[in-house]
Design a binder for these strands. Structure first.
Lengths: 186, 186
DNA sequence: GTCTATATAGGGATAGAC
DNA sequence: GTCTATCCCTATATAGAC
């Protein structure tokens, strides 16, 4: 299997874990989604489901960094401009709130213990990225961090409500209001 | 089994579902937690796991109504006073953020489809309760609803972060700041 | 690298004794 | 109302042919 074929497989795997959760995902579902037999999956992911979940989480975090964090690092742009691009990245990454966040999905049950460290680290990374941007925009450190924490809380919460209400409107509004509100001085 | 004994069993069942999710919860776990054999569980919950999850969700929603909504209905108190008691109820109900919200936990995979209607209804009920309180406090309808939506988003998000960061601090801060911020005029 | 076949365990669920 | 015993199914995982 070529590297790009594997990347495609991982994309399908991510979609399954997002929808069914770690425990709700079976090798049969993964086999169907990837088009590979169960045994073929073990060839690529020796530890089976655990390895696939790890690969899914890693790929998701890389993708998140590219789509959401990279804009925040464009030092030639103003913080507001960066936040605007970042917000667009968020909409794309979460498909306007229709996709669940693996950090939330994997934080429950057996997966929560398996991936405890990367889940905690990636949550902190999100907070730090936004906090640093706020500081660059001249917001005092303590307030910057406070705001970053609230933003990450809002993103996770909006994704939960998108799922229960079957509506993208709250997530879309959050993203729309994000750039203006995050950097406002009060 | 007496009614209070069954209530105790349901409490244990709730704890298991909260920790392991719907799919991650097995009859063995439920048997161990309740102290009842698998077959005894079927005597009380004929449809097995699905019935137990339904009972857990129903009990949780009743308990939430008692601890969180009831304070909001005390018309003799000011909205601020009610919100203060409500906030204390939230802390108790979620054990300072250490307990997950079943609405989030059950919104994934098979349970998400099984309980789609009650999950959506209870999320809307939360929004409506807070929205009505804001209106009573003189906040215009549209803004009131907007704020209520953001509050429910914050609660769900803070619970997610409490789980991934293994820290109660963000949830506790949210609850602490809640009464003052929810009704503030800007 | 993918397949078929299979091993083994655990899942949910039921029947019937007590 | 609780138990033991049992059934069937699906789950994960492995061995080995191609």
């Amino acid at each position: 299997m070529s590297i790009t074929t594997k990347e495609k497989a991982v994309k399908q795997i991510i979609a399954v874990f997002r929808e069914y959760g770690y425990e709700g995902t079976s090798l049969s579902l993964l086999s169907k989604a990837t088009g590979l037999g169960r045994s073929s999956l073990y060839h690529h992911f020796p530890k089976g489901k655990e390895d696939m979940a790890a690969a899914a989480l890693e790929a998701v975090l890389v993708s998140f960094d590219t789509m959401v964090f990279t804009p925040l690092r464009q030092k030639k742009q103003t913080p507001f401009q960066r936040l605007n691009t970042c917000a667009k990245g968020l909409s794309l990454f979460y498909a306007n709130g229709e996709r669940s966040c693996l950090i939330n999905i994997f934080s429950v049950g057996a997966a929560g213990k398996l991936f405890q460290v990367p889940l905690e680290e990636s949550t902190l990374a999100m907070i730090n990225m936004f906090s640093n941007l706020a500081k660059e925009a001249g917001i005092p450190g303590k307030i910057a961090r406070h705001r970053a924490e609230e933003l990450v809380i809002s993103i996770q919460g909006a994704l939960v409500l998108s799922r229960t209400l079957h509506s993208k409107s709250l997530f879309n509004r959050l993203v729309k209001e994000l750039p203006g509100r995050f950097l406002e001085v009060d």
